[in-house]
Amino acid sequence: MNTTEHQELARQLPAPAERDLPPDRHRHHKELLMRTIDGDRPRPRRRLVRPAFALPAAAAVVAGALAVTVLSGTQDRSPETQVAPAKPGTPRGAVVLLDRIAAVAMKTGTEPVRDDQYVYVRSLTTDTVHIKPVKAGGLKEREDWVPQDPYASHEAGVFREDGKFVPITSADKDPAGIDRPTYKWLASLPTDPDALHERIRKETRPVRGQDFDQTVFDTFGTLLSRGVMPSRTEAALYKAAAKIPGVVEMPDAVDAHGRHGVAIAREDRQLGERTEWIFNKETLKFLGERTYLTETGERGKAGTLVRANAILDRAVVDRPRQVP
């Protein structure tokens, strides 16, 4: 790879001043680009996915907000940096578990979200210190306020990290769609799982160097995390996710907050990573997500934690900087 190509790839990295990606997903795609620059992977040809918070969710969304709180910033604790990978289950087990999660989603009473409202999420996420070798750092607490329609909202989106508010400067650049899933757009999706699976695969743009089925898995996770949607749509998304090749269930997984649960997982053999969506074993409420290495190499030993996060609160609010 020549210098010009290095510079062009570097320009594709999100500008630090905008900081409109959550740390975990920013680092995920930055790692892909860095590996490409190092000659480990071919050059990606799609623009980076920019989820406001890349996590799936089966929990009810609560409307309304009143008080504003101050976050404590970086936490003085860290999740275990070495995962003891359990033997994965089977695709059939994933179908059964996702059907159960879909049944819970169907019972979730979600009110329609107005164009002038915001999706609020408070979460914990690890801070990656090194890429080669991988080292997951301490936890940071973060809040996101993502507008449904930046033109109808009072102002564009914003997030708060380390106690500081930062505008989401790209919020008004993307039309509603797979990269910015609004309530209206999600409500327009087919609710037949087969049709929905094909629709998402068709609209997911490949990341060269990443297993395409893993990119689809990540896209489903983004849709289930960023968007508030009708119960039927959410249930259909979980059932459609079961159709992604390589998806299995895991008997035990731990989120960034230390909570154990069952998981839906998929391994990207091209990158040597496994990503898990973690759910409470009894309520099937979404808890968080983690990714760790499945192969020993220059990035670290198998089982090394790459990133982890946890959802602490979700809601629909009327204004940015409001919390439930």
Rank of each mutant, 00 (worst) to 15 (best):
L224G: 09
I168R: 06
R299Y: 06
A240P: 03
R299F: 07
R50S: 07
P190I: 01
R274M: 12
D194W: 10
L9S: 02
F212N: 09
S123T: 13
D268G: 02
V96W: 02
E273K: 13
S72P: 07
P230Y: 11
F217Y: 14
I131Y: 11
F220D: 00
T110W: 02
D127C: 06
A256E: 00
R142I: 14
H130Q: 15
V247E: 14
H260I: 12
A302F: 08
A102P: 08
R100F: 05
L139F: 03
Y118P: 10
A265R: 10
F53L: 13
R180W: 04
D38N: 12
P167N: 14
H6L: 15
L237G: 00
Q75L: 14
S78K: 11
P251V: 06
A86Y: 07
P251C: 05
V316F: 01
V317E: 11
A54V: 09
Y118E: 09
V62H: 15
G163K: 05
P79E: 01
V49R: 09
D20N: 04
S231V: 00
T215L: 03
R100G: 06
E141F: 01
K285W: 13
V166F: 09
Q75W: 06
T204A: 06
K164F: 08
T110R: 08
R232L: 12
A235N: 00
Q210M: 14
L66I: 06
E267F: 14
T126G: 01
R314G: 07
T110Y: 05
K140T: 00
